[in-house]
């Protein structure tokens, strides 16, 4: 654990550090993905791609900028957003790292259960699709993933004050659009 305190760069070169990091966050990443996609095969692909992206960009993490999980959610959000843009252009997924190749029937059933369990968050995520990107990114991390405003700002690489301004602008629109989940936003923590 000590080696991770100064950053995450070691996960791209040290398999033991990677394993430690992976085991610490696989559950959170799996749920993050399950709040965004309905298909277990796509969920498996995205989970694999999130960790690959984390390995690639581990050197960018700075503990002083926020929590490790917040940073990882920022990475995961970029991966999912890229997939969403790609999916808008194509009818089906092609040739990624093939997380789906690692699935057996039991895995699929288990992923489907997880996806079902995250349906409330996924509905919120889908409802946010109509918002402008900058606001949507912030709202996603707060209302769907439960980050604080400060954590969400760190995940998105923006200043907390910028996040608060965006949040202020978004509140009225969100209350109108998301009657069920606006409470989470109203009580979001610093």
């Amino acid at each position: 654990m000590a080696k991770l305190e100064s950053g995450l760069a070691c996960i791209s070169s040290d398999t033991a550090a990677l394993e430690e990091f992976y085991r610490r966050h696989i559950e959170a990443v799996s749920r993050f993905v399950a709040r965004r996609v309905r298909d277990p095969h796509t969920a498996a692909d995205l989970t694999a791609e999130v960790f690959l992206a984390a390995i690639d960009s581990a050197h960018t993490y700075r503990p002083s900028a926020g929590s490790e999980l917040g940073w990882l959610y920022g990475v995961a959000r970029n991966v999912v957003a890229t997939e969403r843009r790609r999916a808008a252009r194509e009818s089906r997924a092609v040739g990624r790292i093939a997380g789906r190749r690692l699935l057996d029937a039991e895995d699929i059933a288990r992923l489907e259960e997880r996806i079902d369990a995250e349906s409330a968050g996924r509905h919120t995520y889908e409802a946010l699709a109509e918002f402008p990107e900058g606001i949507r990114a912030l709202l996603e991390l707060i209302t769907v993933d439960g980050l604080t405003v400060t954590e969400a700002a760190a995940a998105l690489g923006i200043q907390p004050v910028t996040a608060r301004v965006r949040l202020h602008r978004a509140r009225k629109a969100v209350r109108a659009a998301l009657s069920t989940h606006s409470a989470a936003l109203a009580y979001s923590k610093e």
Partner: peptide
């Protein structure tokens, strides 16, 4: 952890090992 997660970890470690090599 269960199967998929273990298999994925093994693949990721392969990727890192290739970089480390």
């Amino acid at each position: 952890m269960q199967k998929f997660e273990e298999r994925l970890l093994a693949e990721l470690k392969d990727v890192v090992a290739a970089q480390t090599a």
